[in-house]
């Protein structure tokens, strides 16, 4: 690839946008993977029970809370 193409601001913006999208996808994928194991303990039915869907949503939000705590604590250790 022509290296000067990296000076193309529109292209850089596109790449950053795709990077962000990839990070979001990765995070949703990771959390779905983890929370599926935590919340869906039986065989999958034809519909989620209300406690299963609440567990999934809570699981995702609590994971974020936890990340913040770990981040803060880790920063204080430095």
């Amino acid at each position: 690839m022509d290296p000067s193409s990296m000076n193309n601001p529109e292209l850089l913006q596109f790449i950053n946008q795709e990077k962000e999208r990839a990070m979001v996808n990765e995070m949703v994928g990771k959390l779905t993977n983890v929370c599926w194991d935590k919340c869906i303990t039986g065989t999958p039915g034809s519909k989620f029970s209300s406690s299963e869907s609440a567990c999934l949503a809570n699981c995702a939000r609590r994971y974020l809370d936890m990340s913040m705590i770990i981040m803060k604590r880790f920063q204080n250790m430095q």
């Binding site: 929370c35 999958p44 939000r61």
Partner: peptide, 27 residues
């Protein structure tokens, strides 16, 4: 039939997680 249900539920779970993270309803 378990496999079909599992696929459907996993896709649904992806939607639930994504909504929980990005829709502004803190809980």
């Amino acid at each position: 039939s378990c496999i079909s249900r599992c696929m459907d539920r996993y896709i649904e779970a992806t939607g639930i997680i994504s909504k929980a993270l990005f829709s502004a309803s803190p809980q």
